[in-house]
């Protein structure tokens, strides 16, 4: 366990029937720290992210928030602890428009208890314009929107509300170069505000530029932890592919 950490994952395992997706993973994120989680396809990154956001419970192991053990029974539990997630598969209701998705689960109401559609539309529009000024036609089913626009909704809603830990599972996968750069700026801004970020990405160069620490997952096991400013692209790629053991390179915390 790390002192002053926002969250600690201790000895997390996850079993899906015969598949062991995670085999005893330890991980901590501190306030204002960007931890990058990298690894090959199927390494278990998204499973780890989903455990941390309450989508399903770990098979064994412990989640601690502010040092205290917690059990998430649903994603709304994780939200209570200000843990917000941008899922790899975006988790938007296709039939609803952008404001409805943006405020899903925490709708604004008028004094009489009805939906305050006008206010929600305005706020959502403003939040989305911050990410992408060209994104104005937001009141139509998100099914009709581009991958980038949908991603913008997922990002905007994750940061709009009270957030202390932000989990981003490949947030730039559907974005063009300009929007990707914007997300990079956003991560820096949030970090400066003291928000902890768990960033999952396949873009090693981005990871090196944005992260403080880089954690490498291979076949459900942590195989390396690097400090971003002391390493380079080759070393990270090497570790993702070959997966040196933690103790082998002395990177144990």
């Amino acid at each position: 366990m790390t002192d002053g950490a926002l969250v600690d994952l201790v000895g997390i395992t996850k079993q899906f029937g015969g598949v062991r997706a995670l085999k005893g993973v330890d991980l901590s994120v501190r306030p204002g720290e960007v931890v990058a989680l990298v690894g090959h396809n199927g390494a278990g990154k998204s499973v780890l992210a989903q455990i941390l956001s309450g989508v399903f419970p770990p098979s064994s192991g412990e989640i601690r928030v502010g040092g205290k053990p917690v059990a998430f029974t649903s994603p709304s539990d994780a939200r209570l602890y200000a843990i917000e997630t941008i899922y790899q598969t975006l988790a938007l209701a296709d039939n609803l428009d952008a404001p409805a998705n943006f405020f899903l689960g925490r709708e604004l109401r008028t004094r009489f208890g009805f939906l305050d559609k006008k206010k929600m539309a305005e706020e959502a529009k403003k939040a989305l314009a911050d990410l992408n000024p060209n994104f104005t036609d937001i009141e139509r089913p998100v099914r009709q929107m581009s991958g980038g626009q949908r991603q913008a909704i997922a990002i905007a809603r994750a940061i709009h509300f009270q957030v202390q830990l932000l989990i981003m599972d490949e947030p730039t996968a559907a974005l063009g170069p300009h929007e990707t750069a914007q997300v990079g700026e956003l991560i820096k801004r949030l970090r400066a505000q003291g928000i902890g970020i768990l960033l999952i990405s396949h873009d090693v160069r981005d990871v090196l530029r944005l992260a403080d620490r880089i954690v490498v997952l291979k076949n459900g096991e942590l195989v390396g932890a690097l400090t971003a400013k002391d390493t380079n692209e080759d070393e990270v790629v090497d570790m993702i592919i070959r997966g040196r053991k933690l103790d082998a390179n002395g990177a144990v915390k």
Partner: peptide, 16 residues
Amino acid sequence: YALGGDIEAARRAGVK
């Protein structure tokens, strides 16, 4: 409506 659109998305968004 959210349930009918994507029940898993609704759950992740905190809908009971």
